[in-house]
Simulated assay, not measured.
Amino acid sequence: MTVRHDGLTVDWFGYATVRLETESGFVAYIDPGRYGVLTGGWEPDNPDVGHPEPVDYRAKDGDVVFVTHDHHYDSDAVERVASEDATVVVYEGVTAEKIDRDVKAVDDLPYDVRRIGEEDRLRVGDCEAWSLPAYNEPDGPHTRANGEPYHPNGFGVGFLLSLAETTVFWPGDSDVLTGHRELEVSLFLPPIGGSFTMDRRESANLAEELAPDLVVPIHYNTFSALETDSEAFVEDVERRGVSVALDEE
Rank of each mutant, 00 (worst) to 15 (best):
Arg80Asn: 03
Pro52Gly: 07
Ala82Tyr: 06
Thr228Asn: 04
Tyr91Thr: 08
Ser186Tyr: 07
Glu53Ala: 06
Gly40Phe: 09
Gly194Ile: 08
Tyr150Asp: 05
Val168Leu: 07
Gly158Met: 01
Pro149His: 07
Arg144Tyr: 06
Gly172Ser: 10
His151Gln: 12
Ala96Trp: 04
Val37Gly: 00
Trp170Ser: 08
Gly7Thr: 08
Phe159Tyr: 14
Arg80Lys: 10
Asn136Leu: 06
Tyr135Ser: 14
Glu202Arg: 05
Ser195Leu: 02
Ala59Trp: 12
Ile30Ala: 04
Asp56Thr: 07
Glu208Ile: 05
Glu238His: 08
Pro44Arg: 00
Phe26Asn: 07
Ser131Pro: 05
Leu161Phe: 11
Val67Met: 00
Asp247Gly: 08
Ala134Trp: 07
Asn153Gln: 15
Tyr220Ala: 01
Glu79Asp: 13
Tyr135Trp: 15
Ala211Met: 14
Ala16Arg: 10
Ala129Val: 15
Ala134Glu: 12
Glu92His: 10
Val27Ser: 11
Ser230Lys: 00
Leu160Gly: 05
Phe169Glu: 02
Arg200Trp: 13
Leu20Pro: 12
Leu122Trp: 10
Val234Phe: 01
Thr9Ser: 15
Tyr57Glu: 11
Ile192Ala: 05
Tyr15Ile: 09
Tyr29Val: 03
Asp61His: 09
Ala129Pro: 13
Pro190Leu: 06
Phe196Glu: 02
Pro212Leu: 05
Val81Tyr: 11
Asp61Asn: 11
Pro191Gln: 04
Gly154Arg: 07
Thr39Phe: 08
Asp120Ile: 14
Pro52Tyr: 03
Pro44Leu: 04
Arg144Lys: 15
Glu249Ser: 13
Asn221Pro: 00
Ala129Gln: 13
Ala245Phe: 05
Asp48Gly: 03
Pro217Asn: 06
Pro44Ile: 02
Leu210Gly: 01
Gly156Thr: 07
Val113His: 07
Phe66Asn: 04
Asp56His: 04
Ser83Pro: 06
Val37Asp: 03
Asp85Ala: 06
Pro152Cys: 09
Arg240Glu: 02
Ser230Thr: 06
Gly7Cys: 09
Glu79Phe: 07
Ala245Val: 07
Ala211Tyr: 12
Glu209Ile: 11
Glu148Cys: 09
Asp76Ile: 13
Glu238Lys: 05
Gly179Glu: 08
Ala164Tyr: 09
Asp107Ala: 15
Leu38Val: 11
Gly41Ser: 14
Gly156Met: 02
